[in-house]
Every structure is written in structure tokens, then in C-alpha cells.
Design a protein around this nucleic acid. Structure first.
Length: 271
DNA sequence: ATGGCTTTATGCTAAAGA
């Protein structure tokens, strides 16, 4: 056999996602986490401001693409590989002013980072906005499937997929994150052929990515699983692991979310 | 629970989050 293709192409890709609840407030946590985990790609959500510290991450060897707005929302991609930006708005919602979507080609994989709308309270305009946004996301994922694009989509979906993905379904009944309409759209995305990477590797419940600041939710482990990675079939075949790193949630001045990490094996050699 | 924290914005309070 000829020599391996040089560089990262021949190696596992480690991709993480983290809702940091303000990149400004969490910059030291993110830097320390990058130093210890050394992901190839990190998707960030809830940047919560116009400014993005491109120079800080550049000095650490990460290229950056960020979609920001004043005070709210905001998503970014950090990558050790070149980032080929494809979209900064969710297709079909091009006039939406909220910074919730970023799509790029990285290392021959289509990488999408999302911060889906919360949707509460459900009797406000925020809930139909959430469902409309998710409907457009489903349409985008359907189009990428039709084109057989290898996709890794990660981020804060703001959806609790199943009863055992929260500490107490009765507490969350009626919440926008748990409403049947939201969960139905999540299932519809899976039914396009995408895999919930964490669920593929871990079938039992009680694994969470978010714990509320209030009410002692973290020490009581009253959490919910709302940050996800979905993988298109060819990528799912290469899935090596999907884990939740709870450690950052226990730090002082922590985000209320903690990172989720997937590792994807190199594509099979041809010939 | 009628949100008990946390963050942003230019602030002495509101809005949003999940």
C-alpha cells in the first residue's frame, strides 16, 4: 500500500460543541478547555455580544468564523483546519436578524453550528418562531441529504428528545423544550437519516448537557440533554465516540451548559 | 412557583434564558 495521506485527513476528527452563555464571561474557561481537550473543531453558541476574540483563538492555532449580534445569541466555529464558509443564515430565513446558524466546509465535511430558539413562553410568538426555525432547519438537512453531503451538525437544539433525557418529565411537561411539536421536529430530522450521536453510543437516560443556575439544579443533577450532534449516514458509520464533559459545569462562574464531543474516524482508504 | 441565578446593555432596571 502507498503511504498515508499526510495531515489530518488520515486522522480522527474531534469535534465539540459548547453553549458558553457569553464568550466574554467564559473566555478563560474556553481557553483552558481547548488546551486540555485539543479538539480539531469547537462550535460555540450564545456568544452574547458583537465582539468576538478572534486574535485570542488565532494565537492558539484556531481559525474562527463567527456570526454575532448585540447582546443576544451568536454562534462561532473554531477550527484547526481551513474554514470554507457556506452560510451565515439558515437558508429560507435569510432576513432573520437573530444570529443562530453557521455552515462551513471543513476537511471535506459540512460542519453546521446552531443555536435553536428557546421558544418559551409557549403562548407567545416565541413558540411559533421556534417551530418555524426548526422546520427550516429540517428542510436544510433534507436538501443536504438529497445531495449526499457528509454532515456534522452540532449545537444547542433546545429540545429534550425523550422522557429519560430530563430528570423529571413532569417538571418539563408543557415547556417549549419538551413540547410534542418540538420533539416531533427533532424526530423528523432523525428520520431523514441523521443519527443522534450521543444516543447511538449511550441508550440509557440520565445524561445531561444543561443544568439551570437556579434551585441547586447542578448539585442535585437536575439536568436536561438539549445539546446534540446529528450525523449524516456516512459520518455516522465513522463515529468512534460521543461524550459529555461535565467538568466545566462544576467550575466557578460556569456556563449553565457543558461541552459535548464527537470523534469521527478517518474515511476508509480506497483500493 | 408568581423563575429562588446569570448575563448584557449604558444602568440604578429590563429582557432573556430553559
Amino acid at each position: 500500500m502507498r503511504g498515508l495521506i499526510p495531515g489530518h485527513m488520515s486522522q480522527t476528527m474531534k469535534i465539540a460543541s459548547w453553549n458558553v452563555n457569553s464568550i466574554k464571561a467564559r473566555l478563560d474557561h474556553v481557553k483552558a478547555w481547548l488546551d486540555s481537550q485539543k479538539p480539531d473543531i469547537l462550535l460555540l453558541q450564545e456568544l452574547k455580544g458583537l465582539d468576538f476574540p478572534y486574535d485570542v483563538f488565532d494565537a492558539m492555532g484556531y481559525r474562527c468564523a463567527a456570526v454575532t449580534q448585540k447582546a443576544y445569541n451568536g454562534v462561532a466555529i473554531l477550527s484547526r483546519h481551513e474554514i470554507g464558509l457556506i452560510h451565515e443564515k439558515l437558508p429560507g430565513m435569510d432576513h432573520d436578524e437573530q444570529a443562530r446558524y453557521i455552515e462551513a466546509d471543513i476537511n471535506n465535511v459540512r460542519v453546521i453550528g446552531i443555536y435553536a430558539p428557546n421558544g418559551n413562553p409557549v403562548d407567545s410568538e416565541k413558540f411559533p418562531y421556534k417551530l418555524t426555525w426548526l422546520e427550516h432547519l429540517k428542510n436544510r438537512l433534507a436538501a443536504l441529504r438529497a445531495d449526499r453531503v457528509p454532515v456534522v451538525i452540532g449545537g444547542d437544539f433546545n429540545i429534550i428528545p425523550d422522557d429519560h433525557d430530563c430528570h423529571d418529565p413532569q417538571v418539563w411537561a408543557g415547556d417549549a423544550l419538551f413540547r410534542p411539536e418540538s420533539r416531533r421536529l427533532y424526530r423528523a430530522m432523525l428520520n431523514l437519516g441523521y443519527s443522534d450521536a450521543f444516543r447511538v453510543r449511550t441508550q440509557n437516560g440520565g445524561h445531561y448537557t444543561f443544568w439551570d443556575y437556579q434551585g441547586g439544579a447542578w448539585p442535585a443533577n437536575k439536568g436536561i440533554r438539549i445539546d446534540h450532534f446529528l450525523l449524516s449516514p456516512c459520518i455516522a458509520d465513522r463515529l468512534q465516540s460521543c461524550t459529555i464533559d461535565k467538568e466545566p459545569r462544576g467550575l466557578e462562574k460556569a456556563s449553565d451548559h457543558t461541552p459535548i464531543i464527537v470523534t469521527i474516524a478517518a474515511p476508509a482508504k480506497e483500493g
